[in-house]
Design a protein around this nucleic acid. Structure first.
Length: 347
DNA sequence: TAGTATGATTCAGC
DNA sequence: GCTGAATCATACTA
């Protein structure tokens, strides 16, 4: 490659001798003798370029043909290609190696986790299962909601893949088109294969930015779907009668201190087929509502107190302990310190 | 259909 | 982190 300047010089030295469209100094390689002369020559060239469009198609084709058939054309063309490849690479080489976009990685990871991208795995069963677990698993039939969620996620997945396919197809078509154009143009102007490759990379980058928008939209759709699904958990379902009775029994038999220990909560949750959190909620609501309107709950309290007494009597006659979960306090106590302010409460 | 009951959530205080 | 209090959202009932 060291001999390029020499080649270029020798080529230009030989020049396009006798070529009809070129000024004399380009033909003999001498150039203008002074600044004004050079300016005049450049002006002439520009003028000729500008008038090309005024020429008839036949004239232009003839000129193009004459250029392509010139004996020095291949050599000159190769030199120009080499020079261009060198200069363009030195300018743009550093831009080629780009680190992966963290935002794109996040989107990809999320789509993978939700089961939208990657292999089909039951339409986000992981998310549905997580939501089901969060809903308490209290014997509540969530299967209909889950199938609805999966169906909608599957729709999103389908749309995503269809669009992705469309983008890829469009990208490939456009890339092929541009490559064909460049290959065609490379016959008349110096375009190196690497330059074509770079152009392809540029096109791919443009299309991947469009893909990123698609991924963002898909992520948003999944988020909306998920939030709607999780909101559906707010749908209140009453506990079954047996569960309510167990909870009430405990509450009224421990009226003096209706604060079940963690163990008692777990036992109650087990018995009622609800979660410990639901037991805590129930007692929280019960305490506040009882306290607000003791009169209203009096009858209920009496009923459960009587039932507890009967149970206790039965238990003692059978020589066994009461069936109620263990608590820090004994059952059926009178007097309710918890009804005083919170700071006065006795545990 | 309005009123009530009830499970869940949120928020502040301790 | 647990609790009380207020509130929301829904189920139930007359």
């Amino acid at each position: 490659m060291d001999e390029q300047p020499r080649l270029m010089h020798s080529h230009t030295g030989v020049g396009m001798a006798g070529h009809p469209g070129l000024p004399q100094h380009m033909q003999d390689g001498t150039g203008g003798t002074d600044g004004d002369g050079r300016k005049q020559d450049i002006g002439d060239i520009l003028q000729q370029i500008m008038t090309i469009t005024d020429q008839s198609l036949d004239e232009a084709q003839a000129r193009k043909h004459a250029l392509n058939c010139h004996r020095m054309k291949p050599a000159l063309f190769n030199v120009l290609c080499e020079i261009k490849e060198k200069t363009v690479l030195s300018i743009r080489g550093a831009q080629e190696e780009e680190p992966p976009d963290p935002q794109l990685m996040r989107l990809d990871n999320m789509l993978l986790a939700e089961g939208v991208s990657g292999p089909e795995k039951g339409g986000g069963s992981a998310a549905a299962a997580a939501a089901a677990a969060a809903s308490g698993g209290a014997g509540v039939d969530n299967s209909a909601e889950h199938s609805d969620y999966r169906a909608k996620l599957s729709q999103i997945r389908q749309i995503y893949h269809t669009e992705l396919e469309k983008y890829e197809q469009a990208c490939n078509e456009f890339t092929t088109h541009v490559m064909n154009l460049l290959r065609e143009q490379s016959r008349t102007r110096p375009i190196s294969p690497k330059e074509i490759e770079r152009m392809v990379n540029i096109i791919h980058r443009k299309f991947s930015s469009i893909q990123m928008q698609l991924k963002q939209s898909t992520c948003e759709a999944v988020m909306i779907l998920r939030s709607r699904f999780l909101d559906a958990r707010r749908k209140r379902r009453n506990f079954n009668k047996q569960a309510t009775e167990i909870l009430n029994e405990y509450f009224y038999s421990h009226l003096s201190n209706p604060y079940p220990s963690e163990e008692a909560k777990e036992e109650l949750a087990k018995k009622c087929a609800i979660t410990v959190a639901q037991v805590s909620n129930w007692f929280g609501n019960k305490r506040i509502r009882y306290k607000k309107n003791i009169g209203k709950f009096q009858e209920e309290a009496n009923m459960y107190a009587a039932r507890t007494a009967v149970n206790a009597a039965n238990a003692s006659s059978h020589g066994s302990q009461a069936n109620s979960p263990s608590t820090p306090n004994s059952a059926g106590e009178t007097g309710s310190p918890w009804l005083c302010s919170k700071s006065q409460r006795v545990f």
